[in-house]
């Protein structure tokens, strides 16, 4: 019974804590990397565990220049990401780049898929290994 109470308590508290964690982290760490582009004001973030992955479908307009920033909390390790077109043709792979950001223009407006992957860890079941991953988009004309 004690365990059950603890479980219910954790079920309520963990999401609140995680959301707050992501918001603060994104604001402090992610948004400065968007500059000098204008952040589009949208927050695409999630708390992920080692081994998790996420796809984010976004639309980008032609005649705009974009900056894509992916930032992840340190405990998640070296989080990588790929940018592909809607037919999954690879455009950018962060593992082949030294830059933390991806600056780009699309010749034609289109949807792109950003695939984020958190590396595996020996402690994949440990709650302390979860962390925030945020995808931010900046733009300028």
């Amino acid at each position: 019974m004690k365990n059950l109470r603890l479980i219910i308590l954790l079920s309520v508290l963990i999401p609140i804590g995680m959301n707050g964690q992501c918001r603060g982290f994104t604001k402090k760490t992610g948004r400065p990397l968007v500059e000098p582009y204008i952040h589009n004001g949208q927050m695409n973030s999630a708390v992920l565990f080692p081994g998790d992955s996420a796809d984010i479908m976004l639309t980008f307009y032609s005649e705009q220049q974009y900056r894509l920033v992916i930032c992840a909390e340190e405990q998640l390790g070296d989080v990588s990401y790929q940018v592909s077109d809607i037919e999954r043709n690879l455009i950018f792979d962060s593992q082949n780049s030294d830059s933390k950001v991806f600056d780009f223009i699309v010749e034609s407006s289109q949807q792109l898929v950003i695939s984020v992957a958190v590396p595996e860890s020996d402690n994949t079941h440990d709650i302390t290994d979860q962390g925030c991953v945020a995808v931010l988009v900046g733009f300028k004309n």
Binding site: I38, D52, S53, D55, I56, M57
Partner: peptide
């Protein structure tokens, strides 16, 4: 078990500011 990796899919659209600029 969480041994299977979780694949999350998210969606978003350009912000109203982007659209106004466009």
């Amino acid at each position: 078990e969480r041994s299977d990796k979780i694949k999350n899919i998210f969606f978003n659209i350009p912000s109203p500011m982007e659209t106004s600029k466009i």
